[in-house]
């Protein structure tokens, strides 16, 4: 009786060692499936860097325009203002286009689908705060309240990032916090709005894009 218990113990022990490797594989596969099914992780860091560079180039062009032709003050009518708006939309459009292109490429490389439940959820959750904020800004601009628009764009963009981070690479959350804080500072000191935009949409995108690029893209 005692012998069979001892024997059983040894058999049990050895299968345990063999199986613990399989269990380890199970656990890592579980984590992988949880991430893959709920998060879209193929966001490209490089596209963040490029978006930041576009923003800096756009800001430099705006700065030069306003300094040379308008004595450092931006009036809300005339060709300079229209050109600045054009630059703004060009930067935004180019950033989105670059993001889509590079993310599609990365998703293909990762074997992740570009348009599935997780990417749809990511985009939806990103767009809800962004669209709500965008509409709100349009409404107050229409009421001739121009002072806070710049701050609000930073704040709502930051909130959109925080909201989206649950469905993508979690680190985006911190970029969102930074944008919200910059937006609040911008609301306090509207005079520095231009430089806070340069910092938020330009420098922070480059810094964050580079961090993402080296953390997730280069290693593999």
């Amino acid at each position: 009786m005692a012998r069979s218990i001892v024997l059983f113990y040894f058999v049990f022990q050895s299968t345990l060692d063999m199986e613990s490797k399989d269990y380890l594989k199970d656990i890592s596969e579980i984590k992988n499936l949880m991430n893959k099914s709920s998060r879209f992780i193929s966001l490209s860091g490089l596209s963040g860097i490029l978006a930041g560079i576009y923003a800096l180039v756009g800001a430099a062009a705006t700065y030069w325009l306003v300094m040379t032709y308008s004595n450092g003050t931006l009036y809300l009518d005339g060709w300079i203002f229209r050109t600045v708006l054009l630059i703004l939309f060009a930067v935004a459009g180019l950033s989105i286009l670059t993001g889509i292109l590079l993310t599609t490429r990365k998703a293909k490389k990762n074997g992740e689908k570009i348009w599935d439940a997780s990417s749809r959820r990511l985009i939806l959750n990103f767009l809800i705060p962004l669209v709500a904020g965008g509409l709100y800004i349009l409404i107050i601009l229409n009421q001739q309240k121009y002072g806070q628009a710049g701050a609000l764009m930073l704040i709502f963009y930051g909130l959109a990032l925080v909201n989206a981070s649950k469905f993508s690479i979690g680190d985006i959350r911190y970029l969102g916090y930074i944008q919200v804080i910059l937006g609040l500072i911008c609301a306090l000191f509207p005079g520095y709005g231009f430089w806070l935009w340069v910092l938020g949409f330009g420098v922070m995108h480059i810094v964050y894009g580079a961090m993402m690029h080296f953390k997730y893209d280069v290693k593999k």
């Binding site: 579980i30 099914s37 709920s38």
Partner: peptide, 13 residues
């Protein structure tokens, strides 16, 4: 393996 997989997906979705 597959049952664990199904449950993992349903845990987070």
């Amino acid at each position: 393996r597959i049952r664990l997989g199904i449950m993992s997906i349903l845990m987070v979705n």
